[in-house]
């Protein structure tokens, strides 16, 4: 396996992972699971930035997107109710 084949296989895997985590983050009714899926989305996106040779953006995305917004969303959900209200 040379470098370009590995690059394109990684691109396809990252795309599939981004799509799956985004659909999971939208479709789940449990809000904490949705927030964790969003953190996974940010982590896969930072891996994509690193593969595309932008390590600055990858570090910023991993720090802000995967950790800080997850902590903020978790604290906000904890301050309100846990389940989404379906009427």
């Amino acid at each position: 396996m040379n470098f370009m084949e590995f690059f394109w296989i990684l691109q396809v895997l990252i795309g599939i992972g981004l799509l799956i985590s985004a659909i999971v983050a939208i479709r789940f009714k449990n809000l904490i699971m949705a927030v964790i899926a969003m953190a996974v989305f940010s982590l896969i996106l930072s891996l994509e930035f690193y593969v595309l040779q932008a390590p600055d953006v990858a570090i910023a995305e991993a720090g802000v997107g995967a950790c800080l917004t997850t902590a903020m969303y978790l604290l906000a959900i904890k301050n309100t109710t846990d389940e989404e209200v379906i009427e």
Binding site: P55, D56, I59, A60, A62, G63, V64, C67, L68, A71
Partner: peptide, 14 residues
């Protein structure tokens, strides 16, 4: 190295 003030501050704050 890659990174800087904003990135390092975000990692520290995380």
């Amino acid at each position: 190295t890659p990174g800087g003030g904003f990135q390092g501050g975000a990692v520290f704050a995380s």
